[in-house]
Design a protein around this nucleic acid. Structure first.
Lengths: 187, 187
DNA sequence: GGCGGTATTGAAACACGTTTCACTTCGCGG
DNA sequence: CCGCGAAGTGAAACGTGTTTCAATACCGCC
């Protein structure tokens, strides 16, 4: 990402960490990033677009950490549970930021659909990787299971971000779903 | 619901049907419902609150239709698939309204958490009912399965409302999830 | 019938996302 | 070095969610 855009996103992340979605006032973002409001709008189509860009950066960080220290585990179930545990904790470590990004990614604005789709695709790949593990066996689990588990995770995260339940619940929801989904004969 | 509040929600629904979330301008809602803006804000804490109230009314309608003609089917799987099919079609029949309500219900505003929680609880009950069927057997499926399936449904609906995938995909996602979840030995 | 408190009204004001615009700056090919 | 087009700037304006407030209408109770 170009340096100016990067600075804009970084500023947005900083503000979101502190005060969540509504603390990300685009005037402030632009001012603190040292650009004019118009420049911000040249790079990002909307506030949501900006926050989803932040989410993509979080995803990149997650991917890198997982490349360095891949998920270990002796079964697909164990690995995918550990993945969701790890990823959920990582996300919820900065709850204001996470809530802001989740809200942006679930706002339904077609302008950001592309970015959101990309984010989902990358997340699904991580889940598939966790399911598959290192060994080149068990190739059949991947596709649909990953989709189902991702939907559970996303649905639960939306609930978490709306204070319907806790971070522990998110982890439990994904564990429960994984247990059921992977019990159906192909793990 | 009190008559004045009802009229406000009805007006909001009407506008949302036509133009979605952004077409629900609260000034217009108030004007068309024949109340002052302050009255609207006395009944509803925010635009999201109002739209989630609309969602609750949709839920009531769904519940009533299901009481009149309960879901039939010879297995929990068959019934729950039919339920999701029915409910998804009902929701997506007015896509603008559905998107607006889903967006409102996933905005993460703690002010509306109560209403959203209530909506989810009622939805979960419908899923449990579909899983259980008429016969008083198979009591063990209920609790966690229903939660998992609901999370899949909600997650998929959020994706649908953001144009990430189609209504048919929502139905497929829930069917896939149901197949896996109910295959794990207790259906 | 008068009174007190609560709901409603109408209108204005405020905040913030978003757009617009005239002007300036920058980078680059000729 | 010039000139041109793209990018950036600063400031203002607009729309809409939300709040505020003084004035008014309503309603049950003495």
């Amino acid at each position: 990402m170009e340096e100016r855009a990067q600075r804009i996103v970084d500023t947005a992340v900083e503000l979101a960490e502190q005060g969540g979605f509504e603390a990300v006032r685009l005037r402030d973002v632009a001012a603190e990033a040292g650009v004019a409001l118009g420049t911000l709008y040249r790079r990002f189509r909307s506030k949501e677009d900006l926050l989803v860009a932040a989410l993509e950066i979080e995803m990149t960080a997650l991917e890198e950490r997982l490349v360095q220290t891949p998920i270990r585990g002796t079964s697909a179930f164990e690995r995918v549970v550990r993945f969701f545990d790890f990823a959920t904790r990582a996300l919820c470590r900065r709850p204001n930021l996470a809530r802001a990004c989740i809200r942006a990614s679930s706002c339904g604005d077609p302008e950001v659909a592309q970015r959101v789709a990309n984010f989902h695709k990358r997340g699904r790949r991580l889940i598939r990787t966790a399911l598959a593990g290192d060994d080149p066996k068990t190739p059949r689990i991947a596709a649909d299971c990953a989709t189902t588990l991702q939907l559970v995770w996303m649905g639960s995260l939306v609930g978490w971000s709306g204070n319907l339940h806790s971070q522990a619940d998110v982890i439990r929801h994904t564990r429960d779903a994984a247990a059921r989904v992977l019990a159906s004969g192909d793990a």
